[in-house]
Amino acid sequence: MLVSTPIGNLGDLSPRAVAALRESDIILCEDTRVTAPLLALNGIATRLQALHDHNEAGRTEPLIAAMRGGRRFALVSDAGAPLIADPGFRLVRAAIAAGLTISAVPGPNAAMMALALSGLPPHPFLFMGFLPPRSAARRAVLERVANAERAGLNATLIFYEAPHRLIASLDDCVAVLGNRAAAVGRELTKRFEEIRRDGLEGLAVHFRTTAPRGEITLVIGPAPDYVATDAELDDALHDALETMSIKDAATSVARALDLPRKQVYARALTLRQDEQSEP
Rank of each mutant, 00 (worst) to 15 (best):
A40D: 12
L41V: 06
L41W: 05
N42V: 04
G43P: 01
I44E: 04
I44R: 09
A45V: 07
R47D: 05
L48H: 07
L48C: 09
L48I: 08
Q49P: 05
Q49V: 08
Q49N: 06
L51Y: 02
L51Q: 02
H52A: 03
H52D: 03
E56D: 07
E56S: 06
T60P: 04
E61K: 10
P62R: 08
P62G: 05
A66T: 01
A66Y: 00
M67W: 07
R68A: 09
R68T: 11
G69V: 04
G70H: 10
G70P: 03
F73M: 10
F73V: 10
F73C: 07
L75T: 01
L75P: 00
S77F: 00
S77C: 02
S77W: 00
D78F: 06
A79T: 06
A81S: 14
P82D: 08
P82F: 04
L83Y: 03
L83K: 11
A85S: 15
A85C: 12
D86H: 05
D86W: 02
P87R: 09
P87I: 08
R90E: 07
R90N: 05
V92I: 15
V92Q: 08
A94N: 01
A94P: 00
A95E: 08
A95K: 09
A95N: 11
A95W: 06
I96R: 13
G99I: 11
L100Y: 11
L100C: 12
L100S: 12
L100M: 12
T101Q: 14
I102A: 10
I102Y: 10
S103V: 05
V105K: 03
P106R: 11
N109D: 12
A110Y: 00
A110K: 03
M112H: 08
M113E: 12
M113V: 14
A114Y: 02
A114T: 07
L115T: 04
L115A: 09
A116D: 03
G119Y: 10
P122N: 09
H123G: 13
P124V: 10
F125M: 08
L126F: 03
F127G: 05
F127E: 01
F127T: 05
F127N: 04
M128F: 01
G129R: 06
G129Q: 04
P132F: 09
P133N: 13
P133C: 10
A136D: 15
A136W: 11
R138E: 02
R139C: 13
A140C: 08
L142G: 00
E143M: 13
R144N: 03
N147V: 14
R150Q: 15
G152A: 14
L153P: 03
L153F: 06
N154E: 14
A155K: 09
T156A: 04
